[in-house]
Structures are given as C-alpha cells and as structure tokens.
Design a protein around this nucleic acid. Structure first.
Lengths: 168, 168
DNA sequence: CTGAACTTTCAAAATATATTGAAAGATTAA
DNA sequence: TTAATCTTTCAATATATTTTGAAAGTTCAG
C-alpha cells in the first residue's frame, strides 16, 4: 500500500472510530490528518485534503484546540496561521482522559451524589433499589476517577511496562 | 427530593451521558430505568414510563440484550415477556468494556497493524511521520487492550482496593 | 384449527447534528 | 489610512440518526 492510500484509510477510519465515541467525524479526521502530517498545515490545506468547508474546518479546529490536542503555530514571516497536532500518543490519551473526566464524569458523579440523598423509606424496595444502583455507580465512578488521575500523573513508561508486569 | 423526581433525573441524565459516548439516548434511558427497577418490566411498562413507542422500545431492548446488559425474564403463568437489567455496576462495566473492545478496539488495532506495513522510503519525513503515528497509537492500543482484559478477568474487589493501594 | 395476546419489522416522518458559504470581522503591510 | 489577506460567525441547508406506528409475524390457550 502507498502512503497516499494509507493516509486516506487512516483518516477515514479514525473519523468513523471517533463517531462511535461521540466525536464528530470531521473533527476526528482533522485530528488524524494533523497527526500524520510532519509539518503544520493551514486551514486551506485541511479544506483541500478533506474536502470540507472553511467554516467547518474553523469550528472543529477551535474545538480541537480547546481539547488541547492541536496548537496554533506561527511561522515567522508568514501571514497565515498554521496548525499542528500533538503527536505523542501518551500525551494525546491523557489529554483526552483529563478533558472527558472534567466535562462529563465529574458532573455525573456530582449528580449521583445528590440523588443518593433521596428522602423515603429505606424499606421500600423501590427506594432501596434506586439508592443501591446510584451508589453502586457512584462508587465505581469514584474509583475510576482515581485510577484515571493516576494515569494522567504517571508517565508513559509506567503504563507500557510497570503496570503490566504487576499482573502478567 | 422524592423518589419519582430522582428517578426522572437519573434516567434523563443517564440518557444525556450516554449520548456523549455514542449510545443512543433512548437505549441509555431504558437501561437506566431497568437498573433502578427492583422488578422486571414489560415493553408496555417501559413505553409508558419513558413515553416512547413500542417499536423504539423493542429495538433498543434488543440492542441492550445484545450488549449483555439486559435479560429476558419469563414469569411463570404470564404470557408476556419481562425484562430485567444486571444491577451490579462492576459486571455492567466489564460487560461494556468487553463489548466495545470487541466491536471497536480490536478492528481498529487490526487496521493499524496493516497500515504500518506501508511501502515507501523511510527517509521521507511524510512516510516517517505516518509510520510513527500509526505505530504509536497501535502500541498504546495494545497496552490498553491488555489492561482492559485484566480488568475484565479481575474481580471488583481488586479494582476497589487492590489496584489502588499499589499507587496511593 | 382459530383468534386473542403479544412481538417484531421497517418505511415514512420527525428530530438532531453537521456542514456550507457568504458576509462581517480582524489584522497588518505598505 | 487603505486594501489585501486571513479568520470567524451563523442562518440556511444538507445529512444522519432516531422514532413512530401500523401491518405482518408469532405463539399458544381453548
């Protein structure tokens, strides 16, 4: 397989993969394109390579930046803006974990904590099942949160070798 | 807060949470409803409580069953089918991990493995960046896969206390 | 068998999400 | 300044996903 074809496949699959995880296809594709591009690209470059509109690129690029996955890059002497993606997989992963945790997991755990304090007869099986379910999810979520924090703080090597050896 | 209101909130938030992760809202809501219901429910019950159509409940219930999160339950002497959700958070989580891994991660890792075998001059920075990116993601994915397998095999207690102590 | 009770299917409709592109807004070289 | 270049916005449009509900399918008691 040639580079051009492989790139296409990678970009298209990364887009499809992303949609299954609630990331919009174009955003994932832009990310994929930037990850395999050795040099920074302009909005124009991305528009051409992915066949999407200026506005679309602009909005999704902004999102990618807010996720900390893409940086604006100034090239001395150039008027236009360039964009470049973080290429280190470990950093990408921890960045995504951190953001999703902050944006989604934390608020959910907060809500569950409130729902647990429901008033009602603990003898009522409806009340009991509700409290048990909610607190079960909350406990699990809290542990997951701790584990993710740990991952984010740790370094890649810990993940690649250290953790694994403990449970071979 | 009263049970009824708390249930509503839980169901609605679980639905919203699900959509951010690529799960359709109704499916997540049905799941939430069944998780907090002490006894099995019929399609009719779900239709009424969530205000969705028969077909919708039927299709999503089928999906939930294929994910291993809901079981059909036969009640002796009853003509209709009842549905009941697994209530153990740990089992729910490992079930979801296992399924998503099988449906999404495995195929993606397979593809990345192929893309890595691209033909081309390794001196070309385009080729190099492509191979580096793809193999970086693949390696990370492989480790993640191992770790998830471990989680699925382990038991809840290991997660709740054991793992955590190692990295306090 | 027969038909009542229940389940499944799926084309059409509704809804939600993503994309476009032209106009307005910035920025800067000259 | 001015005007060329580049970026951002957002209402309109297009696309994708979800939902509906009536019809077809299934099951089983009598």
């Amino acid at each position: 397989m040639k580079l051009t074809e492989a790139k296409q496949q990678f970009i298209s699959s990364w887009g499809a993969f992303g949609s299954q995880w609630g990331i919009n296809r174009t955003m994932a594709q832009i990310h994929a394109l930037l990850m395999v591009s050795p040099d920074p690209l302009t909005q124009e470059d991305v528009m051409e390579q992915l066949n999407v509109s200026r506005g679309n690129v602009n909005m999704n690029m902004r999102d990618l930046i807010s996720w900390g996955l893409v940086d604006r890059v100034l090239i001395p002497g150039e008027r236009k803006e360039y964009f470049s993606a973080e290429k280190d997989t470990w950093k990408i992963a921890t960045q995504i974990i951190q953001e999703r945790k902050k944006r989604e997991l934390d608020p959910m755990l907060k809500l569950l904590g409130q729902l647990e304090k429901i008033e009602g007869d603990k003898k009522d099986k409806n009340v009991k099942q509700f409290v048990d379910t909610v607190s079960g999810i909350r406990k699990f979520g809290n542990q997951a949160e701790k584990m993710l924090d740990m991952m984010v703080k740790a370094d890649e090597n810990w993940f690649l070798s250290g953790l694994m050896k403990l449970f071979k």
